[in-house]
Amino acid sequence: MFDSLTRHRTIALLAEIAEIEAQTLRGSERLREDLGLDSIGSLELLATIASELKLDLEVEDAMEIHTVEDACVFIDRQYRAQHPELYACNA
């Protein structure tokens, strides 16, 4: 459930920032080369997600995110690590 929540929000925000339709995004697409998100755009995406999902995200971690799938996996992992209580309730 939470995996789909974070994935859904990540993709929705990515689509909004890149100004494209969410349903056309593919996991293998690269943020910089395919979506045109440079370092500033990628961090803007993560900053928005961090605010929405109440996450503390490090800049250097963000630099390791290259594709849409990387972003979804990274956010999900961070969400699980920083909100373990939600997963405990729904286990």
Binding site: I40, L43, A47, A50, E58, V59, E60
Partner: peptide
Amino acid sequence: VRARHGVTAVR
């Protein structure tokens, strides 16, 4: 700056 802002430093 890293500690205070994290990824929101971009803003």
